[in-house]
Write a protein that binds this DNA or RNA. Structure first.
Lengths: 120, 120
DNA sequence: ATAACATCTGAATAGATGTTCATATATTAT
DNA sequence: ATAATATATGAACATCTATTCAGATGTTAT
């Protein structure tokens, strides 16, 4: 991934200096780009997408999610942990059961935009 | 991932029938959800995110992208292939060089929404 | 035709990821 | 305290994925 000057490559032949400046100016810091990729990685699993979609309509407990989507309780629990870590879902406890719900409207808009892209 | 009735679980204790109906009605087909996850998987890699971001300002050739982002030409080429496969970038050939550009405004909005979510 | 250049492709490898199994924790009822 | 229930967690395993290396393809100039 890291590179130095030990390999022959073309120069910035096709890129004007001012364009280069604009591209570089737009480019966020490496860490921010990394975090962004980490966020999308969370959306990049069908189990998690299913869970998020199920939560569109109503808060749900772990067990209901598992039955609804035909998944094991353990798998759901693991994935909810990931979704929680990215602040995409929040939860509240009520006795033995834990209810999860969407934490953020960005979830809807991101998924919505993704769906739009697919249906083109 | 697949389950049957051989394991003890809670019933739909917390979910009213009409809510269940709404949740199920909202839920897209499995294949669609799978495709959506595949799409986000593409966004879920920092190299690809960098490439997409670089293309926000201007079309770029493979070699310029590689130098700009300090990546090998091969790695960039492989990732452009993936981006092309998801219709996120398009390209045009000009002599020896190939210029890539964003294929879709959804790229901007999806990345934008992701960034917004991070900065909360 | 040959050389030089830009890009692409396939195989191999190392690292990341999701599920399962077994078990632990937490809450409620008896 | 004990049992029952809902959820969470850790380790192990199999699968997927991104990069690198070596070589192929396509284009232009000589």
């Amino acid at each position: 991934m890291q590179r130095d000057e030990d390999v022959e490559r073309c120069g910035f032949l096709h890129l004007h200096k001012d364009t280069l400046a604009r591209v570089m100016a737009q480019l966020p810091a490496d860490e921010e780009l990394y975090d962004l990729a980490e966020l999308f990685k969370v959306f990049g699993d069908s189990t998690r997408i299913k869970i998020l979609y199920a939560l569109f309509e109503s808060e749900l407990c772990v067990c209901d999610i598992a039955q609804l989507l035909n998944l094991t309780q353990t798998a759901v629990s693991h994935q909810l942990r990931v979704l929680k870590g990215s602040k995409l879902v929040k939860f509240r406890r009520e006795g033995k059961t834990v209810f999860y719900s969407l934490d953020d409207d960005h979830v809807r808009s991101i998924i919505g935009q993704g769906m739009e892209h697919l249906n083109e």
